[in-house]
């Protein structure tokens, strides 16, 4: 190695630009895609989601063939098409239901985008480069949202393709003409993005991977179990849990307490609250 160093040789040509949101987003983009784990987590998640959809469709195709008159029959108890959707409801369900598995991965992914920086010390490099700090949070929000939307859209698209040949012979394939189908299909990436952002917010709030994952999965998976306790006020509150409210966008509203979009709005409120708290603390706390 050379003894004489000349780090300044580019002094005249090196022109720096302020670290605005666009450049910070580019930096976050580079950081995300240069972690090998990002790519394989996304790949595995998509494969698992599509695989589960295909399995579900395969299982459905084996159920007792319902009467060939869609909408008329209640003969088969395992297959319960709704009145207006007919058997295509089953196709829609097999395409969308794997969101429930995907949300776990995306919640963890959202958490990790924040906490892995603290665990490794990377956050100090990040915030030294962008001392305004807010652009870092906003860039990560955009990054996580894009990744989750993209993953969700690809998973739904591939699930559709994978289940179609299985269900079509049974007349169970989804029918985009049925009201609410597009909403449910788009609901998967939207719901996953909201969950991932919730994870990101909690990750920034708690800064420790294990604690943040426990908190997010607790809210998403454990609280709905507690909410099964048949006490009126518990039932009332349960409506407004992030997962139960947000899921309406994918599953449809089973009652008239919250519409699909109102439910998703409740989830959005949790996300905004978590991110706002994260932004505030990111500013206040020492890195």
């Amino acid at each position: 190695m050379s003894g004489s160093t000349a780090p300044a040789r580019n002094r005249s040509t090196l022109r720096l630009q302020p670290p605005n949101l666009g450049r910070t987003l580019r930096s976050e983009w580079v950081k995300f895609w240069t972690l090998p784990s990002s790519i394989w987590i996304i790949a595995v998640t998509i494969v698992v989601m599509v695989g589960l959809s295909a399995l579900m469709a395969w299982g459905m195709s084996f159920t007792e063939s319902p009467p060939q008159d869609p909408g008329a029959g209640g003969a088969d108890v395992t297959v319960q098409p709704t009145e207006d959707g007919g058997l295509s409801t089953l196709g829609l369900m097999s395409v969308t239901f794997s969101y429930s598995v995907g949300q776990i991965v995306l919640a963890v992914l959202g958490v990790m985008v924040a906490t892995s920086e603290y665990a490794t010390g990377q956050i100090r490099s990040t915030l030294a480069a962008v001392p305004a700090r807010t652009p870092v949070l906003v860039a990560k929000v955009i990054l996580v949202a894009l990744v989750a939307l993209g993953l969700g859209a690809i998973a739904v698209g591939l699930s559709w393709l994978a289940t179609y040949p299985i269900l079509q012979p049974e007349g169970m394939q989804l029918d985009t003409g049925v009201e609410g189908t597009w909403r449910a299909l788009a609901g998967v990436p939207l719901y996953l993005a909201a969950i991932a952002l919730f994870g990101l917010g909690v990750g920034f709030l708690l800064r420790h991977t294990a604690g943040a994952i426990a908190a997010v999965l607790g809210v998403l998976l454990v609280l709905p179990i507690i909410a099964m306790i048949p006490i009126d006020w518990v039932q009332d509150l349960a409506l407004y849990l992030p997962a139960s409210a947000g899921e309406r966008l994918v599953l449809g509203a089973p009652d008239d307490t919250l519409t699909e979009w109102q439910g998703f709005g409740v989830l959005g409120a949790y996300v905004v609250a978590a991110l706002a708290g994260a932004g505030l603390l990111l500013h206040r706390r020492d890195a």
Binding site: L14, R23, S27, V30, S125
Partner: peptide, 12 residues
Amino acid sequence: HHLRAIAATHGI
């Protein structure tokens, strides 16, 4: 990649 990510913030 670490350096590239830092450089990106300032258009380096």
